[in-house]
Design a binder for these strands. Structure first.
Lengths: 217, 217
DNA sequence: CAATCTTCTGACCAGATGGTCAGAAGGTTA
DNA sequence: TAACCTTCTGACCATCTGGTCAGAAGATTG
Protein backbone atom coordinates (compact mmCIF):
# COMPACT_ATOMS: atom_id res chain seq x y z
CA UNK A 1 0.00 0.00 0.00
CA UNK A 2 2.61 2.53 1.12
CA UNK A 3 4.44 2.60 -2.21
CA UNK A 4 1.55 2.53 -4.63
CA UNK A 5 1.34 6.21 -5.44
CA UNK A 6 3.51 6.22 -8.53
CA UNK A 7 4.41 9.89 -8.56
CA UNK A 8 4.77 11.30 -5.08
CA UNK A 9 5.76 14.88 -5.57
CA UNK A 10 6.67 16.43 -2.22
CA UNK A 11 5.26 19.91 -2.74
CA UNK A 12 5.92 22.43 -0.04
CA UNK A 13 2.63 22.75 1.80
CA UNK A 14 1.59 25.38 4.31
CA UNK A 15 1.28 24.15 7.88
CA UNK A 16 -2.36 25.19 8.10
CA UNK A 17 -3.18 23.20 4.96
CA UNK A 18 -1.25 20.17 6.12
CA UNK A 19 -3.28 20.03 9.32
CA UNK A 20 -6.60 20.42 7.57
CA UNK A 21 -5.84 18.05 4.71
CA UNK A 22 -4.63 15.30 6.97
CA UNK A 23 -7.43 15.61 9.50
CA UNK A 24 -9.96 15.49 6.69
CA UNK A 25 -8.31 12.51 5.07
CA UNK A 26 -8.20 10.63 8.36
CA UNK A 27 -11.83 11.43 9.14
CA UNK A 28 -12.89 10.28 5.70
CA UNK A 29 -11.09 6.97 5.95
CA UNK A 30 -12.13 6.46 9.57
CA UNK A 31 -15.77 6.98 8.61
CA UNK A 32 -15.52 4.20 6.08
CA UNK A 33 -13.70 1.79 8.37
CA UNK A 34 -15.99 2.43 11.35
CA UNK A 35 -19.05 1.95 9.13
CA UNK A 36 -17.77 -1.34 7.79
CA UNK A 37 -16.44 -2.85 10.97
CA UNK A 38 -18.03 -1.01 13.90
CA UNK A 39 -16.20 0.83 16.65
CA UNK A 40 -14.63 -2.15 18.37
CA UNK A 41 -13.98 -4.02 15.16
CA UNK A 42 -11.99 -1.13 13.74
CA UNK A 43 -8.32 -0.81 14.58
CA UNK A 44 -6.19 2.28 14.33
CA UNK A 45 -3.75 0.21 12.32
CA UNK A 46 -6.47 -0.53 9.74
CA UNK A 47 -7.39 3.12 9.46
CA UNK A 48 -3.72 4.03 9.14
CA UNK A 49 -3.18 1.48 6.40
CA UNK A 50 -6.20 2.64 4.42
CA UNK A 51 -5.20 6.27 4.83
CA UNK A 52 -1.65 5.45 3.80
CA UNK A 53 -0.23 7.06 6.93
CA UNK A 54 1.78 5.63 9.81
CA UNK A 55 -0.27 4.66 12.82
CA UNK A 56 1.51 7.15 15.06
CA UNK A 57 0.48 9.94 12.72
CA UNK A 58 -3.19 9.13 13.20
CA UNK A 59 -2.64 9.32 16.95
CA UNK A 60 -0.85 12.62 16.48
CA UNK A 61 -4.00 14.20 15.05
CA UNK A 62 -6.51 12.34 17.21
CA UNK A 63 -5.12 11.51 20.62
CA UNK A 64 -7.28 8.39 21.12
CA UNK A 65 -9.47 6.06 19.12
CA UNK A 66 -12.49 7.27 21.05
CA UNK A 67 -11.79 10.91 20.20
CA UNK A 68 -11.48 9.98 16.53
CA UNK A 69 -14.73 8.03 16.62
CA UNK A 70 -16.58 10.89 18.27
CA UNK A 71 -15.18 13.29 15.69
CA UNK A 72 -16.55 11.04 12.95
CA UNK A 73 -19.92 10.78 14.70
CA UNK A 74 -20.22 14.52 15.16
CA UNK A 75 -19.40 15.12 11.55
CA UNK A 76 -22.05 12.69 10.37
CA UNK A 77 -24.83 13.90 12.62
CA UNK A 78 -25.32 16.95 10.42
CA UNK A 79 -25.55 14.89 7.27
CA UNK A 80 -27.89 12.49 8.95
CA UNK A 81 -30.38 15.09 10.16
CA UNK A 82 -30.11 17.66 7.42
CA UNK A 83 -33.46 17.04 5.71
CA UNK A 84 -35.65 16.87 8.76
CA UNK A 85 -36.10 20.59 9.02
CA UNK A 86 -37.29 20.91 5.44
CA UNK A 87 -40.87 20.07 6.39
CA UNK A 88 -43.05 22.96 7.54
CA UNK A 89 -46.65 23.18 8.60
CA UNK A 90 -47.47 25.46 5.67
CA UNK A 91 -46.49 22.97 3.03
CA UNK A 92 -49.01 20.38 2.05
CA UNK A 93 -48.01 17.00 3.52
CA UNK A 94 -48.29 15.42 0.09
CA UNK A 95 -45.31 17.40 -1.14
CA UNK A 96 -43.42 17.65 2.12
CA UNK A 97 -43.59 13.94 2.91
CA UNK A 98 -42.83 12.90 -0.66
CA UNK A 99 -39.75 15.11 -0.72
CA UNK A 100 -38.65 13.96 2.69
CA UNK A 101 -38.86 10.30 1.79
CA UNK A 102 -37.08 10.92 -1.49
CA UNK A 103 -34.28 12.88 0.20
CA UNK A 104 -33.91 10.38 2.99
CA UNK A 105 -33.51 7.50 0.57
CA UNK A 106 -31.16 9.51 -1.60
CA UNK A 107 -29.11 10.04 1.50
CA UNK A 108 -29.14 6.33 2.25
CA UNK A 109 -27.83 5.79 -1.24
CA UNK A 110 -25.25 8.57 -1.31
CA UNK A 111 -24.03 8.44 2.29
CA UNK A 112 -24.61 4.88 3.45
CA UNK A 113 -21.73 5.15 5.91
CA UNK A 114 -23.31 7.86 8.05
CA UNK A 115 -26.43 5.83 8.27
CA UNK A 116 -24.62 2.63 9.17
CA UNK A 117 -22.46 4.23 11.82
CA UNK A 118 -25.54 5.63 13.54
CA UNK A 119 -27.46 2.41 13.21
CA UNK A 120 -24.63 0.48 14.85
CA UNK A 121 -24.32 3.09 17.57
CA UNK A 122 -28.00 2.96 18.44
CA UNK A 123 -28.17 -0.81 18.14
CA UNK A 124 -25.53 -1.14 20.85
CA UNK A 125 -27.11 1.32 23.19
CA UNK A 126 -25.82 4.61 21.77
CA UNK A 127 -23.13 4.83 24.41
CA UNK A 128 -21.25 7.62 22.65
CA UNK A 129 -24.26 9.27 21.08
CA UNK A 130 -26.83 9.38 23.84
CA UNK A 131 -26.32 13.01 24.71
CA UNK A 132 -26.61 14.18 21.11
CA UNK A 133 -29.77 12.12 20.69
CA UNK A 134 -31.31 13.63 23.80
CA UNK A 135 -30.62 17.15 22.64
CA UNK A 136 -30.14 17.69 18.91
CA UNK A 137 -32.18 14.81 17.54
CA UNK A 138 -34.92 15.06 20.15
CA UNK A 139 -35.45 18.72 19.25
CA UNK A 140 -35.74 17.90 15.57
CA UNK A 141 -38.07 15.06 16.38
CA UNK A 142 -40.37 17.23 18.48
CA UNK A 143 -40.46 19.93 15.85
CA UNK A 144 -41.36 17.47 13.12
CA UNK A 145 -44.06 15.85 15.24
CA UNK A 146 -45.46 19.31 15.81
CA UNK A 147 -45.62 19.85 12.04
CA UNK A 148 -47.53 16.57 11.69
CA UNK A 149 -49.96 17.70 14.39
CA UNK A 150 -50.47 20.93 12.52
CA UNK A 151 -51.37 19.03 9.37
CA UNK A 152 -53.76 16.84 11.33
CA UNK A 153 -55.43 19.91 12.85
CA UNK A 154 -55.88 21.33 9.35
CA UNK A 155 -57.49 18.04 8.28
CA UNK A 156 -54.77 17.62 5.69
CA UNK A 157 -54.09 14.16 7.01
CA UNK A 158 -55.72 11.55 9.22
CA UNK A 159 -55.02 11.63 12.95
CA UNK A 160 -52.24 9.08 13.12
CA UNK A 161 -49.56 8.97 15.81
CA UNK A 162 -46.90 11.48 14.72
CA UNK A 163 -44.22 9.71 16.77
CA UNK A 164 -44.79 6.31 15.27
CA UNK A 165 -45.16 7.76 11.80
CA UNK A 166 -41.69 9.25 12.22
CA UNK A 167 -40.33 5.91 13.41
CA UNK A 168 -41.82 4.20 10.38
CA UNK A 169 -40.42 6.70 7.91
CA UNK A 170 -37.01 6.68 9.55
CA UNK A 171 -36.65 2.96 9.69
CA UNK A 172 -38.02 2.14 6.27
CA UNK A 173 -35.86 4.75 4.54
CA UNK A 174 -32.77 3.98 6.60
CA UNK A 175 -33.11 0.37 5.59
CA UNK A 176 -31.96 1.34 2.11
CA UNK A 177 -28.56 2.00 3.62
CA UNK A 178 -28.41 -0.25 6.68
CA UNK A 179 -29.82 -3.38 5.08
CA UNK A 180 -28.65 -2.86 1.54
CA UNK A 181 -26.48 -5.99 1.73
CA UNK A 182 -29.54 -8.03 2.56
CA UNK A 183 -31.73 -6.30 0.03
CA UNK A 184 -29.31 -6.88 -2.81
CA UNK A 185 -29.11 -10.57 -1.89
CA UNK A 186 -32.91 -10.79 -1.92
CA UNK A 187 -33.02 -9.02 -5.27
CA UNK A 188 -30.24 -11.27 -6.59
CA UNK A 189 -28.04 -8.40 -7.65
CA UNK A 190 -24.47 -7.51 -6.76
CA UNK A 191 -25.82 -4.21 -5.55
CA UNK A 192 -28.95 -2.10 -5.72
CA UNK A 193 -29.51 0.09 -8.74
CA UNK A 194 -30.95 3.54 -9.21
CA UNK A 195 -34.26 1.89 -10.11
CA UNK A 196 -34.34 -0.10 -6.89
CA UNK A 197 -33.97 3.04 -4.80
CA UNK A 198 -36.65 4.70 -6.94
CA UNK A 199 -39.00 1.78 -6.36
CA UNK A 200 -38.39 2.17 -2.63
CA UNK A 201 -39.24 5.85 -2.78
CA UNK A 202 -42.43 5.06 -4.71
CA UNK A 203 -43.58 2.38 -2.33
CA UNK A 204 -42.84 4.18 0.90
CA UNK A 205 -44.33 7.44 -0.35
CA UNK A 206 -47.44 5.62 -1.48
CA UNK A 207 -47.87 3.82 1.82
CA UNK A 208 -47.30 6.94 3.88
CA UNK A 209 -49.59 9.17 1.86
CA UNK A 210 -52.45 6.74 1.31
CA UNK A 211 -52.00 5.39 4.83
CA UNK A 212 -52.45 8.87 6.25
CA UNK A 213 -55.44 9.60 4.03
CA UNK A 214 -53.57 12.03 1.80
CA UNK A 215 -54.49 11.76 -1.88
CA UNK A 216 -51.53 10.99 -4.12
CA UNK A 217 -52.01 14.05 -6.34
CA UNK B 1 -20.22 -13.14 40.59
CA UNK B 2 -18.76 -16.57 41.12
CA UNK B 3 -19.95 -16.88 44.72
CA UNK B 4 -23.38 -15.33 44.48
CA UNK B 5 -25.47 -18.45 44.23
CA UNK B 6 -26.32 -18.87 47.89
CA UNK B 7 -27.11 -22.57 47.91
CA UNK B 8 -25.07 -24.50 45.41
CA UNK B 9 -26.19 -28.07 45.81
CA UNK B 10 -23.97 -30.37 43.77
CA UNK B 11 -26.58 -32.84 42.58
CA UNK B 12 -25.33 -35.80 40.63
CA UNK B 13 -26.23 -35.03 37.05
CA UNK B 14 -26.19 -37.32 34.05
CA UNK B 15 -23.49 -36.61 31.50
CA UNK B 16 -26.02 -36.09 28.71
CA UNK B 17 -27.85 -33.52 30.82
CA UNK B 18 -24.68 -31.76 31.81
CA UNK B 19 -23.71 -31.24 28.20
CA UNK B 20 -27.12 -29.98 27.15
CA UNK B 21 -27.65 -27.75 30.16
CA UNK B 22 -24.30 -26.08 29.85
CA UNK B 23 -24.42 -25.60 26.09
CA UNK B 24 -27.85 -24.05 26.44
CA UNK B 25 -26.77 -21.80 29.25
CA UNK B 26 -23.73 -20.66 27.30
CA UNK B 27 -25.76 -20.01 24.15
CA UNK B 28 -28.31 -18.03 26.11
CA UNK B 29 -25.73 -15.81 27.74
CA UNK B 30 -23.71 -15.47 24.54
CA UNK B 31 -26.82 -14.33 22.69
CA UNK B 32 -27.31 -11.55 25.17
CA UNK B 33 -23.68 -10.46 25.18
CA UNK B 34 -23.33 -10.55 21.39
CA UNK B 35 -26.55 -8.58 20.99
CA UNK B 36 -25.39 -5.90 23.40
CA UNK B 37 -21.80 -5.56 22.29
CA UNK B 38 -21.51 -7.03 18.80
CA UNK B 39 -19.22 -9.85 17.73
CA UNK B 40 -15.91 -8.04 18.08
CA UNK B 41 -16.97 -6.12 21.15
CA UNK B 42 -17.84 -9.31 23.00
CA UNK B 43 -15.10 -11.20 24.83
CA UNK B 44 -15.15 -14.80 25.87
CA UNK B 45 -14.21 -13.63 29.33
CA UNK B 46 -17.35 -11.47 29.49
CA UNK B 47 -19.54 -14.36 28.40
CA UNK B 48 -17.84 -16.61 30.94
CA UNK B 49 -18.37 -14.11 33.72
CA UNK B 50 -22.04 -13.65 32.90
CA UNK B 51 -22.56 -17.40 32.61
CA UNK B 52 -20.73 -17.93 35.91
CA UNK B 53 -18.37 -20.44 34.31
CA UNK B 54 -14.60 -20.39 33.85
CA UNK B 55 -13.45 -19.13 30.49
CA UNK B 56 -11.80 -22.43 29.63
CA UNK B 57 -15.11 -24.19 30.11
CA UNK B 58 -16.75 -22.05 27.45
CA UNK B 59 -13.92 -22.99 25.11
CA UNK B 60 -14.43 -26.63 26.02
CA UNK B 61 -17.98 -26.56 24.65
CA UNK B 62 -17.32 -24.18 21.76
CA UNK B 63 -13.81 -24.50 20.41
CA UNK B 64 -13.58 -20.92 19.17
CA UNK B 65 -15.41 -17.62 19.55
CA UNK B 66 -16.44 -17.79 15.91
CA UNK B 67 -18.00 -21.24 16.35
CA UNK B 68 -19.95 -19.97 19.36
CA UNK B 69 -21.14 -16.92 17.45
CA UNK B 70 -22.28 -19.01 14.51
CA UNK B 71 -24.10 -21.34 16.88
CA UNK B 72 -25.93 -18.36 18.33
CA UNK B 73 -26.75 -17.05 14.86
CA UNK B 74 -28.08 -20.38 13.67
CA UNK B 75 -30.26 -20.70 16.71
CA UNK B 76 -31.75 -17.26 16.22
CA UNK B 77 -32.44 -17.61 12.53
CA UNK B 78 -35.41 -19.83 13.27
CA UNK B 79 -36.89 -17.38 15.72
CA UNK B 80 -36.29 -14.56 13.33
CA UNK B 81 -38.03 -16.15 10.37
CA UNK B 82 -40.72 -18.14 12.09
CA UNK B 83 -43.70 -15.97 11.19
CA UNK B 84 -42.94 -15.45 7.54
CA UNK B 85 -44.49 -18.71 6.47
CA UNK B 86 -47.78 -17.97 8.17
CA UNK B 87 -49.04 -15.95 5.22
CA UNK B 88 -50.75 -17.90 2.44
CA UNK B 89 -52.37 -16.88 -0.80
CA UNK B 90 -55.75 -18.16 0.37
CA UNK B 91 -55.96 -15.85 3.34
CA UNK B 92 -57.19 -12.36 2.76
CA UNK B 93 -54.25 -9.93 2.94
CA UNK B 94 -56.13 -7.83 5.46
CA UNK B 95 -55.88 -10.59 8.03
CA UNK B 96 -52.58 -12.07 6.94
CA UNK B 97 -50.70 -8.78 6.87
CA UNK B 98 -52.23 -7.56 10.10
CA UNK B 99 -51.22 -10.76 11.88
CA UNK B 100 -47.79 -10.68 10.36
CA UNK B 101 -47.10 -7.13 11.47
CA UNK B 102 -48.47 -7.88 14.91
CA UNK B 103 -46.33 -11.00 15.27
CA UNK B 104 -43.24 -9.34 13.94
CA UNK B 105 -43.50 -6.49 16.41
CA UNK B 106 -44.30 -8.88 19.22
CA UNK B 107 -41.12 -10.67 18.31
CA UNK B 108 -39.17 -7.42 18.37
CA UNK B 109 -40.52 -6.88 21.83
CA UNK B 110 -40.06 -10.41 23.17
CA UNK B 111 -36.80 -11.34 21.45
CA UNK B 112 -34.98 -8.09 20.80
CA UNK B 113 -31.65 -9.86 20.95
CA UNK B 114 -32.24 -12.03 17.89
CA UNK B 115 -33.24 -9.01 15.97
CA UNK B 116 -30.24 -6.96 17.09
CA UNK B 117 -27.74 -9.70 16.36
CA UNK B 118 -29.02 -10.01 12.81
CA UNK B 119 -29.20 -6.30 12.30
CA UNK B 120 -25.56 -5.92 13.35
CA UNK B 121 -24.55 -8.86 11.17
CA UNK B 122 -26.21 -7.42 8.08
CA UNK B 123 -25.05 -3.90 8.82
CA UNK B 124 -21.45 -5.07 8.71
CA UNK B 125 -21.80 -7.04 5.53
CA UNK B 126 -23.22 -10.32 6.88
CA UNK B 127 -19.81 -11.96 6.75
CA UNK B 128 -20.92 -14.94 8.84
CA UNK B 129 -24.52 -15.03 7.66
CA UNK B 130 -24.29 -14.56 3.93
CA UNK B 131 -24.79 -18.21 3.06
CA UNK B 132 -27.87 -18.57 5.24
CA UNK B 133 -29.33 -15.41 3.75
CA UNK B 134 -28.76 -16.67 0.25
CA UNK B 135 -30.50 -19.96 0.95
CA UNK B 136 -32.94 -20.02 3.86
CA UNK B 137 -34.01 -16.41 3.94
CA UNK B 138 -34.05 -15.99 0.17
CA UNK B 139 -36.43 -18.94 -0.14
CA UNK B 140 -38.77 -17.49 2.43
CA UNK B 141 -38.57 -14.13 0.75
CA UNK B 142 -39.44 -15.54 -2.67
CA UNK B 143 -42.32 -17.53 -1.28
CA UNK B 144 -43.76 -14.50 0.48
CA UNK B 145 -43.38 -12.33 -2.61
CA UNK B 146 -45.24 -15.03 -4.53
CA UNK B 147 -48.09 -14.82 -2.02
CA UNK B 148 -48.23 -11.06 -2.52
CA UNK B 149 -48.35 -11.55 -6.28
CA UNK B 150 -51.21 -13.99 -5.81
CA UNK B 151 -53.16 -11.40 -3.87
CA UNK B 152 -52.47 -8.81 -6.52
CA UNK B 153 -53.69 -11.18 -9.26
CA UNK B 154 -56.89 -11.72 -7.29
CA UNK B 155 -57.32 -7.94 -7.06
CA UNK B 156 -57.23 -8.19 -3.30
CA UNK B 157 -54.55 -5.54 -3.21
CA UNK B 158 -53.04 -2.89 -5.48
CA UNK B 159 -50.12 -3.85 -7.71
CA UNK B 160 -47.27 -2.67 -5.51
CA UNK B 161 -43.73 -4.04 -5.61
CA UNK B 162 -43.78 -7.18 -3.44
CA UNK B 163 -40.04 -6.96 -2.80
CA UNK B 164 -40.09 -3.40 -1.56
CA UNK B 165 -43.23 -4.01 0.43
CA UNK B 166 -41.37 -6.78 2.23
CA UNK B 167 -38.41 -4.48 2.87
CA UNK B 168 -40.73 -1.86 4.29
CA UNK B 169 -42.52 -4.27 6.60
CA UNK B 170 -39.27 -5.85 7.75
CA UNK B 171 -37.50 -2.64 8.51
CA UNK B 172 -40.35 -0.81 10.16
CA UNK B 173 -41.20 -3.72 12.43
CA UNK B 174 -37.57 -4.57 13.19
CA UNK B 175 -37.05 -1.00 14.27
CA UNK B 176 -39.09 -1.77 17.39
CA UNK B 177 -36.18 -3.93 18.50
CA UNK B 178 -33.15 -2.44 16.78
CA UNK B 179 -33.87 1.20 17.47
CA UNK B 180 -35.75 0.84 20.73
CA UNK B 181 -33.05 2.81 22.56
CA UNK B 182 -33.60 5.71 20.22
CA UNK B 183 -37.37 5.40 20.28
CA UNK B 184 -37.56 5.46 24.03
CA UNK B 185 -35.37 8.55 24.11
CA UNK B 186 -37.68 10.24 21.60
CA UNK B 187 -40.70 9.23 23.65
CA UNK B 188 -38.98 10.41 26.83
CA UNK B 189 -39.46 7.12 28.61
CA UNK B 190 -36.99 4.78 30.25
CA UNK B 191 -38.29 2.10 27.95
CA UNK B 192 -41.16 1.44 25.59
CA UNK B 193 -44.43 0.17 27.02
CA UNK B 194 -46.97 -2.32 25.81
CA UNK B 195 -49.02 0.61 24.49
CA UNK B 196 -46.11 1.93 22.46
CA UNK B 197 -45.70 -1.39 20.69
CA UNK B 198 -49.44 -1.50 20.14
CA UNK B 199 -49.39 1.96 18.61
CA UNK B 200 -46.64 0.77 16.30
CA UNK B 201 -48.70 -2.21 15.21
CA UNK B 202 -51.67 0.06 14.57
CA UNK B 203 -49.75 2.55 12.52
CA UNK B 204 -47.79 0.11 10.41
CA UNK B 205 -50.84 -2.07 9.76
CA UNK B 206 -52.85 0.97 8.77
CA UNK B 207 -50.17 2.25 6.40
CA UNK B 208 -49.63 -1.14 4.82
CA UNK B 209 -53.30 -1.94 4.34
CA UNK B 210 -54.50 1.47 3.19
CA UNK B 211 -51.32 1.94 1.19
CA UNK B 212 -51.97 -1.27 -0.69
CA UNK B 213 -55.62 -0.42 -1.26
CA UNK B 214 -56.95 -2.97 1.21
CA UNK B 215 -59.90 -1.78 3.28
CA UNK B 216 -59.25 -1.86 7.00
CA UNK B 217 -62.23 -4.11 7.77
C1' DC C 1 20.40 31.45 7.78
C1' DA C 2 19.40 30.38 12.49
C1' DA C 3 16.16 29.72 15.95
C1' DT C 4 11.82 27.90 16.73
C1' DC C 5 7.65 25.70 16.06
C1' DT C 6 4.87 21.91 13.90
C1' DT C 7 4.57 17.59 11.77
C1' DC C 8 6.01 12.99 11.33
C1' DT C 9 7.55 8.22 12.54
C1' DG C 10 10.00 3.84 14.06
C1' DA C 11 10.56 1.56 18.10
C1' DC C 12 8.63 0.32 22.09
C1' DC C 13 5.30 -1.06 25.90
C1' DA C 14 1.52 -2.66 28.95
C1' DG C 15 -2.69 -4.74 28.95
C1' DA C 16 -6.29 -7.38 26.79
C1' DT C 17 -7.78 -11.33 24.28
C1' DG C 18 -8.36 -15.82 21.96
C1' DG C 19 -6.81 -20.05 22.54
C1' DT C 20 -3.92 -24.29 24.58
C1' DC C 21 -2.88 -27.87 27.79
C1' DA C 22 -1.88 -30.94 31.52
C1' DG C 23 -3.98 -32.80 34.94
C1' DA C 24 -7.81 -32.79 38.47
C1' DA C 25 -12.62 -33.99 39.29
C1' DG C 26 -16.65 -36.20 38.32
C1' DG C 27 -19.71 -39.69 35.77
C1' DT C 28 -20.22 -44.35 33.49
C1' DT C 29 -19.80 -49.10 32.85
C1' DA C 30 -18.77 -53.95 33.63
C1' DT D 1 -14.51 -51.06 42.78
C1' DA D 2 -11.55 -50.42 38.97
C1' DA D 3 -10.79 -48.92 34.43
C1' DC D 4 -12.39 -45.65 31.42
C1' DC D 5 -14.65 -41.76 29.52
C1' DT D 6 -16.29 -36.91 29.89
C1' DT D 7 -16.22 -32.60 32.07
C1' DC D 8 -13.79 -29.00 34.19
C1' DT D 9 -10.15 -25.49 35.23
C1' DG D 10 -5.91 -22.77 36.60
C1' DA D 11 -1.93 -21.53 34.54
C1' DC D 12 0.12 -20.26 30.59
C1' DC D 13 1.17 -18.21 25.95
C1' DA D 14 1.35 -15.76 21.38
C1' DT D 15 -0.67 -12.16 19.26
C1' DC D 16 -3.01 -7.97 18.77
C1' DT D 17 -4.10 -3.35 20.06
C1' DG D 18 -4.24 1.31 21.84
C1' DG D 19 -1.13 4.38 23.16
C1' DT D 20 3.75 6.66 24.32
C1' DC D 21 8.01 8.85 23.25
C1' DA D 22 12.37 10.56 21.68
C1' DG D 23 14.14 12.42 18.08
C1' DA D 24 14.16 13.22 12.87
C1' DA D 25 12.23 16.06 9.19
C1' DG D 26 9.90 19.86 7.50
C1' DA D 27 7.72 24.63 7.86
C1' DT D 28 7.83 29.36 9.71
C1' DT D 29 9.64 33.55 11.27
C1' DG D 30 12.83 37.35 12.08
Amino acid sequence: MKNEKATKKPVRRKLADIRKDNSDQILLVAEKVFAERGYRGSTIAAIAEEADLPKANILYYFKTKEILYKAVLGRQLGIWMQHMDAMTVDQHPRDALRDYVRNKIKQSKDHPNSSRIFAAEILHGAEFLQEKLRTDLKDQFDRTCEVFRGWIAKRWMDPVSPEHLMFMIWSSTQAYADYSFQSSIMLEKPEMTEEDYEAGVELITRLVLKGCGISLL
